[in-house]
Nucleic acid binder design. Sequence first.
DNA 1: GGCTAATTTGCACAGGTGTGCAAAATTCGA
DNA 2: TCGAATTTTGCACACCTGTGCAAATTAGCC
Lengths: 338, 338
Amino acid sequence: MKDKSGKSFVSAQQVAELAGVSRSAVSRTFTEGASVSKATRDKVMAAADTLGYHVNHLARGLIQENSNIVCLVAADMASPYQSKFIEILTRDLQAANKVVMIVNASGDSGVNRALRQTLYYRADASVVLSGQPDEALIETCVRSGQRVIVANRDQSVSGTENIMISNRASAREAFHMLHRVGCQTIALVASDVGTPSLLARETAFVEEANAQGVDVTVTRSGASTYASGAEVARRLFSGQNHPDGAFCITDLLACGFMDVARNEFGLKVPEELCVIGFDDIEQAGWSSYNLTTFRQPLDEITQHITQLINEPQPALETVPPPTRFVAHPVWRGSVRPR
Amino acid sequence: MKDKSGKSFVSAQQVAELAGVSRSAVSRTFTEGASVSKATRDKVMAAADTLGYHVNHLARGLIQENSNIVCLVAADMASPYQSKFIEILTRDLQAANKVVMIVNASGDSGVNRALRQTLYYRADASVVLSGQPDEALIETCVRSGQRVIVANRDQSVSGTENIMISNRASAREAFHMLHRVGCQTIALVASDVGTPSLLARETAFVEEANAQGVDVTVTRSGASTYASGAEVARRLFSGQNHPDGAFCITDLLACGFMDVARNEFGLKVPEELCVIGFDDIEQAGWSSYNLTTFRQPLDEITQHITQLINEPQPALETVPPPTRFVAHPVWRGSVRPR
DNA sequence: GGCTAATTTGCACAGGTGTGCAAAATTCGA
DNA sequence: TCGAATTTTGCACACCTGTGCAAATTAGCC
């Protein structure tokens, strides 16, 4: 434990000297598939243990073509949906021997600088979980030779690989679920962040309703948060024609919406009001909400991303078709049975 | 845009050639405080823009003593409390020009290997948010010259810097809050993950109760989750003496506990049952819960951590006293007024 | 043992950067 | 215009690793 010498880390050279071999031997010992005799490997390992040596991945990443770093760009990291996504994805990537750098894209000014870090550290790939970053920013990454994988954006940028969810189809299904059980006045609770995937849910729901000759009032009040859903409910139930069915484009909105409808306006769910959400966050399963919603197959998605990263990047020029996943409905108690 | 040449990044050498200067000039242009004339700086910047050049932080980290990488070790990343913590901390660190590597410490087998990555990439510091990793593992990091900052562990490992919360004092206060409003049968809802900080809340509450001559039944059923709190409630209210006051060592437990008490046993909160939680997660403020709880001053804590990382590391031998933060009560509606 | 084939080892270079040092260029003052 | 003082520049080295290549060692076989 020669910790005294400043605070510097121990290098392969020092291990080589202690073990009485060349530095190459040390390097080969820690390189998979390299040719080392058992005798020297043992000597090296012993010396490395004594000194507490670890391969410096910064230097290794300098040589090899892949750094094993994956950059994760996410906004709203504290929301139940995003945090679950991050949790599973980091676990999968770790299992695949990748290291995850995280970029919090929430701060308005910081996104730009933060996303550039991606490039600075020569990450193998960047996974964008947020709908927020500008197209221009993503293009910067692509142009600099970065591999970019975009989840849930419903809008391809040239040179990226895309993963999408059946926002439109599921939203149409949501309408029919409400329509079928006899809801007369149907509301759509949306948000005014212009994320393409949220917009897709919104427009598809309205289009399908109109196609069936049903009118839908669209209300929004800020971001996709609990408070925003609550505010929308207050506005709707204070007004003239109260809805008896609502599709909230996000579970968080649905929770706020339901709480106000029940606790402030005394409505019974699902008898007087049916509510459908989207995402299937943990709280949707809590017995206070018991929310019928659409589950995003997060496990499949994260595994697909991990697999994508493990494969070599496809040719840059071609725009590969997005991989699509289906969000299936999860029936709980916030929609009355037929 | 000479993207064609394979997918390799552009180096300072290429910029130098295009700008007609030496590579040193390029390096100095991107190094703060280095001596470059305006004329060459402009030439370099122009060339860099044309080629899309970025300093390679891997190589820079190889030279300089600090890599600007901070490693974040967290378990249970999807829980409201942890995800909030991570969200704020990453934002603060980003603002301080650090890059965050995240290690998901939840997978049983992966922790060890994942935590070692910390060393491999020569992170400036590791921040441990989870109570889970072995003391031995943390010691490995310290011994390898890693700087380790531990939050919420209530148990110092030599060579680490510690941040603690007033678990004991707040738990004692929780008892008095229940006792003062006349709760007769008081329950403690705990978990059986042996995190030191959770244990501190538990024991301090029981000790204070006993000191006041009050008996407390301690119940636990797995981890600190919603489901676990629900299960405890089912067990308690199916049994003989029903509690009329409960301290849940975590808000998540409290949510599950309240939901079952109200929705399955028809109890009224706070008239028939007072509940106190801990952490002040977002859901505690939702109107279905309206939970009286203790707020951890996350902003102060993360700012303190960031500041710590910006300062030079204190001498290794001394064990600096932990920094303590106070979790103050947040009065909401789950405890009846006096 | 002797010869060939196979394995292991060390050397030297590459990867992209920061920086001390001395040479070159510029500025300043008279 | 000339010399001194200051700034800028380029060279070369350092950081720590992986790897091709040739030399050296070992194994295999008769």
